[in-house]
Amino acid sequence: MEITQNTALVVVDVQKGFDDAAYWGPRNNPAADGNIASLITAWKDTGRPVVFVRHDSAGPDSPLRAGSAGNAFKDYVEAGRGSGAGPELLVTKSVNSAFYGTPDLHAWLREAGITRIVLAGIQTNMCVETTARMAGNLGYDVLFALDATHTFDLAGPDGLHLTADELSRATAVSLHGGGFARVVTTAALTAAART
């Protein structure tokens, strides 16, 4: 795998509020935080562009609501912000897709000549997947670091319930099989970024 110098890492919603197990329920992939941190370090060390996306929830009871402690980035993400020589952008949003945030992510990527992005963050099947689908529709070459994401169990209609692992597998199949993104590993990405 080749990672060009202008391949952007987009880190979606890695916020403290997602550590509220009582609110979100069971999660998967305990290695996600370590993998996300590894990607941030590799991108920062090599001067590549990094986009940090923060969800500012309008829900009054949401752990991610604007102004709350849970709205803040996790400590390892905050430590990575402002470091390294590459370009950096902070996008805030209140919906699923990072392309509907402020400032305009698509405009920033296009102005920088960026055509490939790597996606990581929380939740696998929600904001990270939605951003991947939209990026694919906009013509970006999308690499989806599945092991650098996690999600939570979810209930659907008529008693249907899927575990976080089932939802992650469904996301991987939908994105990769549907041509929206290539599902890859953190190890492959970091190795390629450092060569």
Rank of each mutant, 00 (worst) to 15 (best):
G86K: 01
V118A: 04
G121T: 09
L89M: 07
G80T: 00
L109E: 15
E88T: 04
N125G: 10
G113W: 13
P87D: 15
S97K: 03
G80R: 03
S68A: 10
S94N: 14
E129M: 12
Q123W: 06
K74C: 06
L90M: 14
A120Q: 12
E111M: 09
N96P: 05
I117C: 09
T102M: 13
R110Q: 12
R110D: 15
G121C: 10
A85P: 08
S94K: 03
R81G: 00
G70R: 03
A85I: 06
E111Q: 13
L89C: 06
A98C: 06
A107M: 12
G70S: 10
A112V: 02
G67L: 02
L109F: 08
G113F: 10
G121W: 09
G86M: 09
E88V: 00
F73C: 00
P103E: 12
N96F: 10
M126N: 13
E78V: 00
T115M: 11
S94E: 15
S68L: 01
G86N: 03
E129K: 10
L105D: 10
G80H: 02
D104C: 08
E78G: 01
A66P: 04
S83Y: 08
I122H: 03
F73N: 10
I117K: 04
G80D: 07
D104I: 07
V118H: 07
M126H: 11
A107P: 12
G86V: 09
A69F: 07
A72F: 00
G84M: 14
A66K: 13
N71D: 15
I114W: 07
G84F: 12
